[in-house]
Design a protein around this nucleic acid. Sequence first.
RNA 1: GCCCGGGUGGCGAAACUGGCAGACGCAAAGGACUUAAAAUCCUUUUCGCCGCAAGGCGAGUGCGGGUUCAAGUCCCGCCCCGGGCACCA
Length: 780
Amino acid sequence: MLPYPSGKLHMGHVRNYSIGDALARYMWMRGYNVLHPMGWDAFGLPAENAALKAGRDPREWTLSNIAHMKAQMQRMGFALDWNREIASCEPEYYRWNQWFFLKMFERGLAYRKEALLNWCPECATVLANEQVVNGCCWRHETTPVEQRAMQQWFLKTTAYAAELLDDMKQLEAGWPERVLAMQRNWIGRSEGAEIDFALENAPDKIRVFTTRIDTIYGATCLILAPEHPLVSALMTEVTERLRIKEMIDATARQDPAKLEKAGLFSGHYAIHPFSGSRLPIWIGNFVLMGYGTGAIMAVPAHDERDFEFCRMYGIPVVPVIRPEDGVLADGETMTAPFSGYGVLENSGQWSGLPSVEARQKMASFANQNGFGAEAITYRLKDWGISRQRYWGTPIPIIYCDRCGVVPVPEGDLPVRLPLHVKITGQGESPLRSVAEFMNVPCPRCGSAARRESDTMDTFVDSSWYFYRYCDPHNDGAPFDSRLIAQWFPIDQYIGGITHAILHLIYSRFWTKVMRDLGLVSNSEPANNLFTQGMVLKDGSAMSKSKGNVVDPDEMVDRYGADTCRLYTLFAVPPEKDMDWNESSVEGQRRFLARLYKFVTRNAGRGGNGDFNDADRQALRKLHQTVRKITNDFDSRWHFNTSIASLMELVNELYQLESKLSPAPIREICEKLTLLLAPFAPYTAQDLWEGLGESGPIFRHSWPAFDPNLAKEDLAEIPIQVNGKLRGHIHVAFGTPREDLERLAVANEKVKQFVQGKQIAKVIAVPDRLVNIVIKPEPRP
RNA sequence: GCCCGGGUGGCGAAACUGGCAGACGCAAAGGACUUAAAAUCCUUUUCGCCGCAAGGCGAGUGCGGGUUCAAGUCCCGCCCCGGGCACCA
């Protein structure tokens, strides 16, 4: 069980951990070996920003934040495995981030390129695509992201796109459907073909990606993304280039959903590889450089966007797909494109073929003639990991004027973060101003060289920290693979839905890379994922930037840690979002007090002897409760109903208390305390010691239930007449159908509804119910 | 537009395989204890109607249909709310 928090502890974390902790305690009590640690990771930005404001050293500041959080969590009584605690900001850990980086660099999985990148002015750093939400930073939801051209390091997540998608089949049983759906969406596989269009008066080709090669005879122009490399070759005039530049900037600023289409004719033409006709080459702001090839063939008759664009600029519309049972549209007069499948028309030798068949045949024709092939495109992009921050793992690269890009030799790791760095928040990496860090001899030629000054995204830390937990003090390797084979894949991972496409894709990617490095044998990090709901305050998720966090300390002061934990478990089932509303916390406190009082005042009353009726009733309820809570733990973790059944038990014990003999008292007190232990460990431990026991209660075995004791003496069978409840009878379990029918009809309450009417039939389900169906009265 | 969730009392919710709708808790009301208050303990509490009362009758799980002896649960068609993706070619 491996959850992890980020930022400062708030009620959302408390809920997350209360769920994981209850489960871990239960598993311990059932005799399982459970690794139940926690991670300190994506701490960089908040810590650094806070340090900047407070004028303090970011490292010291972060470590003190971690210490504070740890104290809070210990106060909550979470039985985390502190011996395996990992601060991913420590050189002992990030050394292995650097080691992995070098391994990926060797294999071409880490590379550097200049790219237009998402830049958050507030964080003063680059963001990964995954960290951009609605054109804004994921931390600053109202700060629009800007585009900047920078040299950046990337990890080649796209090399694993197909596998990340295919392996989701293995996860279907254990991962929530909505997480898989989000990842499927994010990876965005689409099948089609890549086709080359030759330029009319130049040797260059324009490659386009299309999912609808069957519509290619309807292509009436090509459209390039404004960032497309060919654009600068085609558009040489200064005024033209300025207009392209404007187009790029305007596109970046706009919310893409509201962007108006705009285009520019390049003055050049390409040759249609199938028909040989001339197609004008345009530049269009709606064509994305980051998807497919950054160029499209426009088929206005059969695509919404192309239609809009071509109508805007008077480019002809040529329908080539006839709907089945329909007629071919007229390009001059059609008001909307037809984007469905149908039968090809005006498409040379392919006319008359249905779309699906034509797609295959035309792609292989293109392949045979050397101007295209079937292709699969993914929306997923490579993971940009460079950050212009102090806080993070230094990227182990040295730039030498003579040798170029030189990786730091493995033996020189870790490249340590210098201490006492001045944070300016001014965009450039703070490390760049530290001369003793920056200036190093080149490892190859020994001449003066410079270090890479960017640090890694802290999501690198969280991508594999849970592997390190199995072997946290290993000096010679990230971990011992044999230990990993024992523990992995993780049986149960618990985390927030917020990580569905960030952390949970990165860590899947990292696992596959480690597998290909021969370090692990599993392809997926976790068999089962549980995404617990968020704690909402004022309608949105608690986050520091929104200032709507509820600090657990205050609540613990007022009510105690156990009440606080019980409340987060009782209010709603764990997978649901929970609105923060303190009004019912009182009830949890009352319940704990009632249970505590019952056990303490009865602790010394135990004895031997025969059971009386009250004893038997109490024991029955006790064993039913053990059964119920055990089932809840083993199947679904609806801790709200588990706690509700504990409340029922306590209520019943209060009712029976004065009639109980000493005989069952010991068993009742003991099992009641054990049942409470996963949810309210402090109270349970206290009661446990009060019962004369010693040692941690969660090392004691989970109580068993006796099915015979849990069984009711008689079954209460509801009697319905025409589906309406009219009475009950009490019979022995297993009373056969015929007896039930007879007893039901003879029942006094039922008689008055049945008397004088004709019984059509009687449905009797043993131990369940009886339904008497009477014929409607004939109309007079 | 596409893909996931969800809609049940004044509120948070429960009902696990189609079988007694509203467990448990909050809030509210009443009672016991107390000089008093708090705390605690006990009782009532889906709505409407009838009854002095025990109790009785009817309606009821977003809306409209359907299947079934029986539907919160299954099927068809809608409405609303939340989340994710989105000029993705």
